[in-house]
């Protein structure tokens, strides 16, 4: 039996403690934002926040989550009332197929919670674990810059202005 909090709700899960969080989120709890991409921790599609930090849920077993607080993109806002980072991605129209974007949003959220005034290099470094095949990178970076400003911070040395 493992107890953890997901988007503010306490859950008691009694499955296989080796089962990665991603399958629980998607199949048991109906939380579809985190996506399966590789199952190897190489692409970031499954990224969620665990105690505020970006974690790849496809390789994070339930056993490692006892007593922790998980936040998925569903916990950041809704289509009607998006969170700050989600709104920045909408404002920048920062998606093509969109499959990788929830992972990008979770990763950006973790970055900006830790440091709302990152440098351009540290922003890119923080986003580096997440892959996008459509090539939406420039818009994703613009969205992160915009979100940083909306959180009262900003990128210290932006290479591109948020549009």
């Amino acid at each position: 039996m493992i107890e953890l909090t997901i988007n503010g709700t306490r859950h008691r899960l009694d499955g296989d403690p080796a089962e990665p969080l991603l399958y629980i989120l998607r199949n048991e709890l109906g939380l579809h934002a985190a996506k399966f991409g590789c199952g190897l921790g190489q692409c970031g599609s499954c990224t969620v926040l665990v105690d505020g930090k970006a974690v790849q849920s496809c390789i994070t077993p339930l056993a490692a989550l006892a007593g922790r607080a998980v936040t998925t993109v569903e916990g950041l806002g809704t289509a009607a009332a998006p969170g700050v980072v989600q709104q920045a991605f909408i404002d920048e129209q920062a998606a093509q197929c969109g499959y990788c974007i929830p992972g990008m949003i979770a990763r950006a959220e973790a970055l900006l919670r830790a440091d709302s005034r990152p440098t351009e290099a540290s922003m890119r470094s923080a986003m580096r674990p997440s892959l996008c095949r459509c090539g939406t990178h420039m818009r994703i970076l613009r969205a992160v810059r915009r979100a940083a400003m909306a959180m009262g911070g900003g990128i210290v040395d932006p290479t591109e202005p948020a549009s």
């Binding site: 579809h32 399966f36 993109v73 569903e74 289509a79 998006p82 989600q86 991605f89 974007i101």
Partner: peptide
Amino acid sequence: RPRRDIPPKLTGAAAYAHDMT
């Protein structure tokens, strides 16, 4: 015009074949 599919995709809607149940 803002893309209609973006807000649901960014907030966890079951937007993909992968999400169907």
